[in-house]
Design a protein around this nucleic acid. Structure first.
Lengths: 208, 208
DNA sequence: ACTACTCTTTACCAACCAGTCAAAGAAATA
DNA sequence: TATTTCTTTGACTGGTTGGTAAAGAGTAGT
């Protein structure tokens, strides 16, 4: 057995890495479709073709799988907003943020739905994250946007509601994907139309 | 026993009306917080201070309670959009629609979350409603909006994405209420700020 | 009072739930 | 090869789930 260490933790074996990843992939699908309470270990085990005790060999319980999933997600969740550059050109910085969020909704709709499920059910497991990590970041970027407003670089808008509206509209295409697809005329790509629409929307809102 | 009839159905007694309403009130709370799969009959029974078999005396099962709730909701769900008047002044008609949707989010957040839960989980019980009732109405109103665009009364926008964006932003304040309240500075009323912001947003988007 | 009906509860069931455990089966190491 | 460690599983448990059966309690008409 190799004695590799990373910090305090033993290195994962190839099998462990592969199986843990397979379980998380399956669990993401199950949790994002049914929510935490509505999902069962049997569903997750079936989705990754493992026996239930084997799943529990890699994670200490249902809660632990869910926690691992959320922890990975929350890191990536902040990235698009964090990348908004205070020194960049205001309108293109905001449009770039919209694009990144929309791209995340398109590429990771299950992650978006996992998050939505969690918030919808009162955010029991991520209240601290929202209260501290997310709030601090939003406060910081809201101050940046307020600076842009005061400098006359963009029109007068409430920075918090601006951010909320970006979240709402981009995540809507992932979270309500079924509805969007059922209502949009057949063959229409939701994300293509959304991108064009959102650019028009925010340019007309923000141009002073 | 009174022999009143309404159509083919016997009239509900006062007790029946009262208890059915109490069960639905309790079930709305439970379902909107936990989703259909995550909710239990025991929770619903406890929330209306009845025994579980007594709840099942009034509804044939968990599914039936949920169905009754959705049916009532879906009627009201279409109303705000249906009231958009093709002959009215375009921008104020759209702003009035935004206001009605925002007011619904504020007054009936649990209903909004019940709907969100349902869509998020793939709309298994309301696919027909979305595919026919909702889609027909949206198609009709999208045509109206397209007419306004062609008449030069409002700026050029995709009517479907316009409607999606109104849904997304108004429902966001109900569905993600916890997040909104945790991030907004203390003492700020989400809906007051949202109303102002959304007016600015859509006026600047739609003014030709 | 009696009767007929509505409403409510206690006790219960089969299916399913998260999680355990001992032991068998594979891999890696020596 | 023998041995140790890692991986997998079948059988099980105690608790919860949606739902039922049947009997009791309440109510109104006669």
């Amino acid at each position: 057995m190799c004695a590799n260490r990373v910090g305090e933790h033993k290195q994962e074996t190839r099998i462990q890495a592969k199986n843990r990843a397979a379980i998380k992939r399956a669990a993401l699908k199950v949790f994002s479709e049914n929510g935490f309470l509505g999902s069962t270990l049997d569903q997750i085990a079936a989705a990754c073709s493992m026996s239930k005790p084997n799943v529990l060999y890699y994670f200490s319980g249902k809660e632990a799988i869910h926690r691992a999933l959320l922890e990975e997600l929350l890191d990536n969740w902040l990235a698009p907003l964090r990348h908004m550059d205070p020194d960049g050109e205001p309108i293109s910085e905001i449009l770039a943020y919209v694009d990144r969020k929309l791209q995340m909704a398109q590429e990771f709709p299950m992650e978006s739905r996992l998050f939505a499920n969690e918030i919808l059910q009162g955010a029991p497991r991520i209240e601290d994250f929202i209260r501290h990590d997310l709030k601090d970041l939003v406060d910081e970027k809201a101050a940046v946007i307020s600076g842009w407003v005061e400098a006359g670089k963009i029109a007068q808008v409430d920075p918090y509601h601006l951010i909320f509206s970006i979240w709402a509209m981009t995540q809507h295409y992932a979270d309500f994907e079924i509805q969007v697809r059922l209502i949009l005329p057949d063959g229409t790509d939701p994300y293509e139309g959304a991108s064009t629409y959102l650019h028009t929307l925010f340019v007309s809102l923000l141009t002073p």
